[in-house]
Structures are given as structure tokens and as C-alpha cells.
Design a binder for these strands. Structure first.
Length: 287
DNA sequence: AAGAGGCCCTGATAGC
DNA sequence: TGCTATCAGGGCCTCT
């Protein structure tokens, strides 16, 4: 579900809410996430202060005191919710990603703080938590990951070099986390649409200019998504409880059989399958 | 060794 | 109404 921008938005929200707070207690209701949660997990986090919340790619990194780290991956359906307690009132509910109200089912992990609790909900359980007691462990986890699109290393030279002698379509490269980190199935389609590149094109045939466009448009799209997500999150908090999901407006993703959004184009959006995942494109614009 | 596909899991929706 | 099939935004693992 969540790609880099969505995880970044969760990070920003967590930063405001739980940075500097002490985890009084951890309650695991279901250990069977993507990777089984170790039985010592609760003990390792209990009584720890949260010093910072960072992010790499689609992963949240909760920094704890003494160089301890808790990595959270939301998988496809993971959401994080904060319940704030008010002394004289009912708890108020703040949800950080995609669901306006706290779901009743699949609340697998809870962190308790003084005046609030954090809840990890994940129906499909593709997400997971991972604890590291030093920085090296964390570094090792991400050592094979490609640069994020925002990274200077992600430039046209890098792309051209990487694509040499590789026979894989460009869409699958954008999903390949070893090549670039943080892009998922939605933004891959969006980036290629904006770049006017056909997703099925074997990457080795990309011209320098096309590589440049991919770099520029990856950054543009992810930045925009973060900006928009940020503002809807604020709206959502203000409207509490009201249906205030992310208003995601995609140019191609999910727009099968609808008109191409380019004013000059008479094309219709098509949906194809690449490595068992759907790709949306305009075959007129994306040659 | 690169690349394709299966699979982990639940829920929503479509079609009969 | 209830069944079955299909699909979903991730990524690890296996096989060729």
C-alpha cells in the first residue's frame, strides 16, 4: 500500500506525536506478521525513550535511546493510529494513513505512552517490526537498497550505467528496490506517464534524455505526493472522524478506459500486466 | 546471475 | 442472499 510519500507522511505525524515520549508498555496481540515478532520484542522497547523518527524508502525507523532502532514496514495494508486520552472526555482518534477511523479488527501491536497509545493495524499482515540494538544492524539491512529518487546518486548517469546489458522493462526497474528505493506500483505508472515512456520498453534502450526525465519526474511526483498528503492529513485532523481520506488524484493509475488527461491527447488509458502487477498507461503518449 | 512468477494474507467488489 | 472468482498500493523466495 504505502509507497515512500505515504510513509513520509506517517513519519511526520509520528514525529509530532511520539518523539521524545517514553514507551511505557508494548502489547502484541498477534505476532504473526510478515516475519514473526520475537517474544522479546516487548521487553526490548519497554521503558525506552523515542529520540527520533526517521524513514528510509518505505520503512519507518523509530530511533530509541542507546542506539536502539525499531524498523516498521507497513506492507500493503498497514496503518498507524494514535489514540489520545483526555481526562474528562472520550479518547480522540487520529489515524495517520488511509483509514479515518480505528478499525475494530487486526490491531496487532500497541505502544502505550503517558497520555496516548499507538496502534498498528494490518489486515493482510504483510508488514512487520524489526528491532536492532545497534546502528550496524540497521545499516546492514539497507545495504543492498538503491538510492532514493531524491538522492544525488539517482541521476541519469546512474540510470544509463545501471541499465547497460540488462534486459528488463523500465516499469519493473522502477519497482526494483535494489535499483531505486521507495517507488511502488502506483507511482511507477505515474512517473512513466509523466515522462512519456512506454512501461514495456526494455531499459537498455532508454536515451539519456529519457533517463533525465525519469529522474526529474520521480522527484516531482514523490514531492507532490508528500505535499498533498501532508495537507490532507491536516485537514483530516481538523475534521476528525469525517471521511477525510487522502484525496489521491492520479493521472493514469486506476483510470482504465478513461480519457488521457493530456489536453491534446485523444487516447484512452489502458491497463496491462507486468510481472503479475498492473500497469496503467496511455499508448498514444507513451511510445 | 538476472529475471519471472508464486506466494504470504484478508477484504472489497463483481458476476452469477 | 450467498457463493466463487478476481484483484489490491510489497517484497521475499524459488526456479529457470
Amino acid at each position: 500500500m504505502p509507497e515512500l510519500p505515504e510513509v513520509e507522511i506517517v513519519r511526520q505525524s509520528l514525529l509530532k506525536n511520539i518523539k521524545g515520549k517514553k514507551i511505557n508498555k508494548v502489547l502484541v496481540k498477534n505476532r504473526n506478521l510478515r516475519f514473526k515478532l520475537e517474544t522479546s520484542f516487548e521487553k526490548k522497547l519497554k521503558s525506552k525513550f523515542i529520540s527520533n523518527i526517521k524513514r528510509f524508502s518505505k520503512y519507518l525507523i523509530i530511533e530509541l535511546e542507546n542506539k536502539n532502532f525499531c524498523v516498521v514496514h507497513l506492507g500493503m495494508s498497514g496503518t498507524i493510529h494514535i489514540i489520545k486520552y483526555k481526562k474528562d472526555n472520550l479518547p480522540t482518534n487520529t489515524s495517520f494513513y488511509s483509514s479515518p477511523n480505528l478499525p475494530k479488527k487486526h490491531n496487532h501491536v500497541e505502544f502505550f505512552f503517558k497520555n496516548m497509545k499507538l496502534i498498528y493495524n494490518d489486515p493482510r499482515r504483510f508488514g512487520y517490526f524489526q528491532f536492532f540494538n545497534n546502528f550496524n544492524g540497521l545499516k546492514k539491512k539497507f545495504k543492498n537498497f538503491g538510492p532514493e529518487p531524491f538522492n544525488k546518486k539517482f541521476n541519469s548517469k546512474y540510470l544509463i550505467n545501471y541499465f547497460k546489458k540488462k534486459d528488463k522493462n523500465i516499469k519493473n526497474f522502477l519497482l526494483d528496490q535494489n535499483f531505486v528505493s521507495g517507488i511502488g506500483n502506483i507511482y511507477a505508472s505515474e512517473i512513466l506517464y509523466l515522462s512519456k515512456i512506454n512501461p514495456s520498453l526494455s531499459a537498455k534502450y532508454l536515451k539519456k534524455n529519457q533517463c533525465k526525465n525519469i529522474v526529474i519526474n520521480s522527484r516531482k511526483i514523490l514531492h507532490n505526493a508528500i505535499r498533498k498528503g501532508g495537507s490532507t492529513i491536516r485537514d483530516f485532523k481538523n475534521t476528525k472522524g469525517k471521511q477525510g481520506n487522502f484525496q489521491k488524484e492520479f493521472k493514469v493509475y486506476g483510470r482504465y478506459k478513461q480519457n488521457c488527461k493530456r489536453p491534446s491527447c485523444m487516447g484512452t488509458i489502458n491497463k496491462i500486466t507486468q510481472s503479475n502487477r498492473s500497469t496503467f498507461l496511455c499508448e498514444i503518449c507513451q511510445k
